[in-house]
Computed example of a mutant assay.
Amino acid sequence: MGKKVVLVTGASSGIGQATAELLARKGYKVFGSVRSLENAQTIEGVTPLRIDVRDDVSIKAAVDGVLQQEGRIDILINNAGYSIVGAVEETSPEEAMALFDTNVFGVLRMSRAVLPAMRGQGDGRIINLSSVLGFLPAPFMGIYAATKHAVEGLSESLDHEVRHFGIRVVLIEPSFTRTGLDTNAAPTAQRLPAYTDQFERTIAAVTAKIQAAPEPMKVAEQILQSIEQPYQMRRPGDKRAALLSKLRRFMPAGPVDKSLRKEFALS
């Protein structure tokens, strides 16, 4: 068999772009999805595809095109997503549904699109970008955290369902990373004065952590390891994520709660 064929969603920036660049350098045949081909940045060794993960028609056209050209898709990396900041009470059902449509249903649509080919070829890997917020709470990012909790449950369930076809599912769990996702998160449309003081203190604490956070390439390296090293369901995206994962599993709930409130500057 020749080069493994990889499809990366959300390859126009951040972790998706870094991952597409790294895998292309390592000799993989990489297709990187963007929502607009006209504005797509050229990445050496990466073939751009137009995919909107909210749109079944664009997904089918892109996946069919890759299969016609290459005959297989070995690895799907579900990276496309965005974030929204605001208190849960400030978040409208419409804003929440839009976020789930991309972050969760986008993963579902893409996975459903590639699974028939993966089952037919008898192997494959689906790598889903989660977050430490997939197993930890996140004040003022509650709906985003909810989408990542959903991706975690979907991924574990899917792995059990497809394992006997030779397909495995991986979760990559970064902490804060210096990407547009973390720095350019959209605010909720509604703003309630009752939350203003706490919101500003929490966002200031988060912003400071993002400024000191690892670059996207660190997460891309973990994605590469998830492909080339022995299978592991969950892979922390960086050292901080690995520490938080251990704290969540092994520390009593009380100290974890207290530590998180300190982390997010909660009164």
Rank of each mutant, 00 (worst) to 15 (best):
L133P: 00
S131K: 10
P139F: 14
I127K: 15
S130T: 09
R109K: 09
E90G: 07
D101Q: 07
T91V: 03
I84R: 06
I127Q: 15
N103M: 12
L129Q: 14
L129N: 13
V104I: 04
A98S: 13
A113P: 14
D123F: 10
P116E: 06
L99H: 01
V132P: 08
L133K: 09
R112A: 05
G86P: 04
S131G: 09
G106V: 15
L108D: 04
N103V: 09
G120A: 08
A138Q: 07
L136G: 11
G122D: 07
S130L: 08
D101F: 01
P116H: 05
M118S: 15
P139L: 10
G86L: 06
L129C: 09
A113M: 12
N103D: 14
A87G: 14
F105A: 06
G134K: 07
V114D: 07
G134M: 08
N103A: 13
E94R: 06
V114C: 08
F100K: 08
G86S: 03
V132C: 13
E89D: 03
P139H: 11
I127S: 14
E94I: 03
L129T: 12
S131Q: 12
L129K: 12
R125E: 09
E89I: 01
L129V: 11
G124H: 10
M110C: 01
I84N: 03
G122C: 04
D123K: 10
F140C: 09
V88K: 07
G134F: 08
Q121F: 12
S131P: 10
G106L: 15
I84F: 01
I127L: 15
